[in-house]
């Protein structure tokens, strides 16, 4: 299969901009809402999720391609993917606790929660369903990771600015965050149709 760069770039743009994991496909909202109170924590979370996502999508492609499909055990996909992702997350948590204790402390409960992050499970499943080749699933995973991190960091910086906004008392806190997230997804609708060439 010729290495068609154009095709891969289209996949990348597709997952980062056009159907962004968080804003258009509305996956992975719980860390998105929970961690974005502070910018440092969100950068840490974005890094961790990107790491887990890319490794997870690669290994899950491997397992799906070599183990599950030849033996016709397609129904095992979700189960095996979750086990791999849990392993990788536990690994990242240990690395994080050793080298960046303040970040580990800042993320707190949200670090193990990456396993339950629907984006992290969603991408390998999407890869498997649309039977991407290894490279395609890699680009798809990378695109998803970059999309998730970019949007999370932008959202965190916006929320830090909203801290001091004179928001009506009833909307303070996560209510205004939800409204901002909806306006962000409205903006991302503009990319519709960008990757049909």
């Amino acid at each position: 299969m010729t290495f068609d760069l154009h095709h891969y770039i289209m996949i990348l743009i597709g997952t980062v901009l056009v159907n962004n994991i968080v804003l258009v496909k509305i996956l992975g909202l719980c860390p998105f809402m929970g961690v974005s109170k502070k910018l440092e924590a969100s950068i840490g979370m974005a890094g961790a999720t990107a790491f887990v996502l890319s490794i997870g999508s690669m290994t899950s492609w491997g397992i799906n391609h070599y183990l599950l499909e030849p033996n016709g055990l397609v129904y095992l996909r979700t189960l095996s993917f979750i086990v791999i992702i849990a392993g990788v997350v536990q690994f990242t948590e240990m690395v994080m606790e050793k080298n960046f204790p303040p970040l580990h402390q800042a993320l707190g409960i949200f670090l193990p929660l990456i396993t339950t992050n629907c984006a992290v499970l969603g991408i390998p499943l999407l890869n498997a369903q649309s039977s991407h080749s290894f490279l395609e699933s890699l680009f798809f995973g990378m695109g998803g990771a970059v999309g998730f991190s970019m949007v999370l960091i932008l959202f965190a910086s916006m929320r830090e600015r909203l801290e001091a906004a004179d928001v009506p008392a009833v909307f303070k806190g996560s209510a205004i965050a939800m409204v901002t997230a909806s306006l962000m997804s409205l903006a991302f609708m503009g990319f519709a149709g960008l990757d049909k060439y």
Binding site: L73, S80, V83, F91, M94
Partner: peptide, 27 residues
């Protein structure tokens, strides 16, 4: 049976990996 073998194999591999890294990253 193959399903069971695969799942066990997977769990085993990950368990070993985590065990090693738990030693490496003692806090």
């Amino acid at each position: 049976l193959t399903a069971l073998y695969i799942m066990l194999g997977l769990a085993l591999v990950l368990g070993i990996m985590l065990g090693i890294s738990a030693l490496l990253f003692k806090v």
